[in-house]
Design a protein around this nucleic acid. Sequence first.
DNA 1: GTGAAAGCGCTAACAA
DNA 2: TTGTTAGCGCTTTCAC
Lengths: 349, 349
Amino acid sequence: MAEKVTSLQVAERAGVSQSAVSRVFTPGASASKATAAKVRKAAAELGYRPNALARAMTSGKSRMIGLVVAYLENYFYPEALEKLSNALQAEGYHVLMFMASQTAGNIDAVMEEILDYQVDGIVMASVAMSSDIARRCQQAGVPVVLFNRTQDIEGITSVTSDNRAGGRAVAEFLVAGGHRRIAHIAGWEGASTQRDREAGFLDGLAAHGQALYARAVGNFESETARAAARALCSGAERPDAIFVANDHMAIMVIDVLRYELGIDVPGEVSVVGYDDVPPASWPAYNLTTVRQRANLMVRHTVDALLEQIENPGAQPPRAAIVDAPLILRGSARIPDHWPATGPEGESTS
Amino acid sequence: MAEKVTSLQVAERAGVSQSAVSRVFTPGASASKATAAKVRKAAAELGYRPNALARAMTSGKSRMIGLVVAYLENYFYPEALEKLSNALQAEGYHVLMFMASQTAGNIDAVMEEILDYQVDGIVMASVAMSSDIARRCQQAGVPVVLFNRTQDIEGITSVTSDNRAGGRAVAEFLVAGGHRRIAHIAGWEGASTQRDREAGFLDGLAAHGQALYARAVGNFESETARAAARALCSGAERPDAIFVANDHMAIMVIDVLRYELGIDVPGEVSVVGYDDVPPASWPAYNLTTVRQRANLMVRHTVDALLEQIENPGAQPPRAAIVDAPLILRGSARIPDHWPATGPEGESTS
DNA sequence: GTGAAAGCGCTAACAA
DNA sequence: TTGTTAGCGCTTTCAC
């Protein structure tokens, strides 16, 4: 196993000082063409590459972004994660991953670990944080952006889709479709996304003089969602439409209705989801849903992060809200008169 | 923004030497109860935590594992990634993520970047590496394990399911089911998984005197798989069974057959996949498939990695092969006489 | 533009 | 057990 090649060795071989080598490999450097050439040649011969950790130590910039993510079963996250990692990589940053279950109190412990690694920033995907931890990050000078969550307390940067408007649009769509027994299956009630989607949804119903016909909690989990579907639709007095708080659950709900309860979707019950994950567009589900524009959300996330890293404290924390178009497909009856917006009505970016 | 707290500051406050502080926070340390107490107290008051990067510099151990992953659209990977990250976290390691497309030649560049971060090990999920890079890692003394890929060249540790046996089992199952026009939709032909699955499959057919009826390439991609399905099944002389190289494609294939071509699955064509991703068990697909036991594969991966990190060169590189049970569901006709193995016949771990 | 020198925060001999 | 002393490999003043 070959020894590690250091900048000093390159310097000796190139006949220059060690700091000259450093300069050649440092973006904002100042080195003459001549030395640069000598150094690069020596480096190539030796197979030298700067040690990113040592660089991080002296420069105070690790070029690592901590990512906290709760669960990947909801297929919105793998997609977002892939885009996020790619976008960050393109900017010369890399993702240090941490899994955390949202309910467990282990998030604080995880955050401490992240901070230990001197990350330049943190993105929390679908995870809330205690105000305590928020303060620690602020103290440490590490910018945080919440992805797909907002935080009520104080000013933390966040990026979400317009959950309220999305929920409201679903209500209007369902009402316009002639539904009169409209139900809701909620996700985890601690989530801001859940609260906002439902609030918008209830607003929309109220605006048309309707109240929620029934409600169950699916917790964003497969099994809980299935149970919720059964609870809601087993009796004769079942709803004629259900707004499910995300696609992951909506798919489970459709399966229970169709294959367990023998209910026709959308013939007897309309189902609408939220997220527009890839399976939503699979013909077997053809799920009417609200799209979360992952590309845009990631773009906002990266921009906010880099902005805060590059000029700390320049911008006040802000909540970016990305529009969330309703995607019309076949799992819910379509009103006779409805602005034409098909599945391809909006790009995913 | 508060200054960073160093071990020196803790030392002063506790009235001990800086190295005493270090010892208290180093697992294999030797410090008296008394000093430990003083140090912990001072540390708590100051909010001190060891700088992981500085620790990495001096100890030579970063406790970071580089993970290269090609794409997350195949839902086998989010699942594996989550389990891997969790398992590593439990051992005190963290995942530094790198995205790389498998075809592009950028893998080598990505590997260099990974090495820059002084990771203690690398896991390559579904990505092959040049022997050149393999050598560099060896030189750098960084153990590599291939997850869901094998490499023909020299000795690299790898973890896969028993792709050959899995493919063979599918063939026997299909033949026993009375199929006589058995086709295959291949994934990316550069993948060892593809080659092994197909080789086993062909073996199995041959053992029963059958030859492949038709073949198309789906490249492990959604659109290509759909096109392959159309090519194979549009004519009258279509196959009566298709082994699709992974579930991700198999789902696309089923959709094309059912909703585009109006073919009954499994009535007219049986479809079998590979992986047993979560959507395979959704009632709408109810896909007969070969299970890759993600938990087990991850366990082997982590064990091999840690083993190599802790005693380098002690074990020769080996190829771990995890058994891959056929999971009987409803997308393929079941032979009258077949050993009873239902969907729940095997645990996922 | 370039070299010398001083650390970044920590661990790991080495003495005591 | 403890403190002292060297570094880990690099960036960054500071003179020149």
